[in-house]
């Protein structure tokens, strides 16, 4: 977990998100994916990466398989079938497989960028950051977190009570299942509505809304934030240039084309700037651990 200013990590991750959506060129997509993966590994959160990939692997595989099946474009035919149920006559081409793979990579990028984001700033800082601008929403969110924790304990307890009152939760029929769940839901529904008044009283007692709020934590831009935001700015410039020169684009159909010399040079520049961030992160991580040793 790093301790970047939330604004820095939001900008960086939004950039990555939209770059992935915009670029079609597999080289760029692979660069971005590698960036996220290496970044996560530097931060030392391999497990969160694996967790999210496990969770979304079916979606990704589905995309990779789906595209070649439905796309009849492309010239390099690998497989042909005269009749497949529902799909009819299909041909599977090298181009459509490449297209599917590229889309799979894009989805992977977008999925992992959410993990990456959660590692860049501490949740406390994110709260403080939003509290400044969206104070109602942050208070509601943190109250909701509290309530979810309490209710999930309540749920377990009430379920036990109901089991001992003869409710059978292991129903196969969906409507019977709904009926079994009903007492639990109704009880937490009524109890927490009653609790909502108590919570409001507590807010009142804490003088919420009595004056213009100040903030307990003050977030500061550190050196690393300036550095990463500098590359963010450069990335935006690159983004605009590439958009104008059509560099991020790539046509899979009718046949895969080679990358042009200009494209590759541009990719190099793009990657140089993007991967500067990794250097900063690595340096920051090391510097932080050095500092903690002292």
């Amino acid at each position: 977990m790093l301790k970047l200013h939330p604004a820095t990590s939001i900008i960086l991750c939004l950039l990555l998100f939209f770059l992935t959506l915009l670029y079609n060129n597999p080289l760029y997509i692979i660069s971005i994916l590698l960036f996220i993966v290496i970044g996560t590994l530097i931060i030392g959160e391999r497990s969160s990466l694996i967790k999210v990939l496990k969770y979304s692997k079916f979606n990704i595989i589905f995309l990779i398989l789906l595209n070649p099946l439905i796309s009849q474009n492309g010239r390099t035919i690998i497989f042909k079938a005269s009749y497949v149920p529902f799909l009819g006559r299909i041909k599977i081409t090298l181009e459509s497989i490449a297209f599917g793979l590229n889309m799979g990579l894009k989805l992977t990028c977008i999925t992992t960028v959410f993990v990456f984001y959660s590692l860049l700033s501490e949740r406390d800082d994110i709260f403080s950051f939003f509290a400044k601008y969206l104070n109602k929403l942050t208070i509601i969110s943190s109250m909701t977190i509290n309530i979810i924790h309490k209710l999930s304990i309540d749920l377990k307890r009430i379920k036990e009570v109901m089991v001992l009152r003869g409710v059978n939760f292991n129903q196969k029929n969906i409507f019977k299942k709904v009926r079994a769940v009903y007492p639990i839901i109704k009880i937490i529904f009524i109890s927490s509505l009653e609790g909502s008044l108590d919570r409001a009283e507590a807010l009142h007692s804490r003088l919420y809304g009595k004056a213009k709020r100040t903030n307990y934590y003050i977030l500061r831009f550190r050196k690393i934030d300036y550095m990463i935001n500098m590359t963010n700015l450069l990335l935006i410039i690159i983004f605009i240039i590439s958009f104008m020169l059509n560099y991020g684009d790539y046509d899979f159909y009718p046949t895969l084309r080679n990358f042009s010399y200009h494209e590759l040079i541009f990719l190099l520049v793009f990657n140089f700037i993007l991967y500067l961030n990794l250097l900063f992160i690595w340096w920051y991580k090391k510097w932080k651990s050095l500092k903690s040793e002292i």
């Binding site: 309490k150 609790g195 108590d198 919570r199 804490r206 003088l207 004056a211 100040t214 903030n215 307990y216």
Partner: peptide
């Protein structure tokens, strides 16, 4: 004012933040 049910009167997610919450509300300087 301190209420009966300990579960229902804490608003924030961290203890330190909870203590500061009232102070933020009255607009005290950091």
């Amino acid at each position: 004012m301190v209420f009966q049910d300990p579960e229902r009167q804490l608003v924030m997610d961290k203890v330190e933040r909870e203590l500061a919450f009232g102070l933020e509300n009255i607009g005290l300087e950091t």
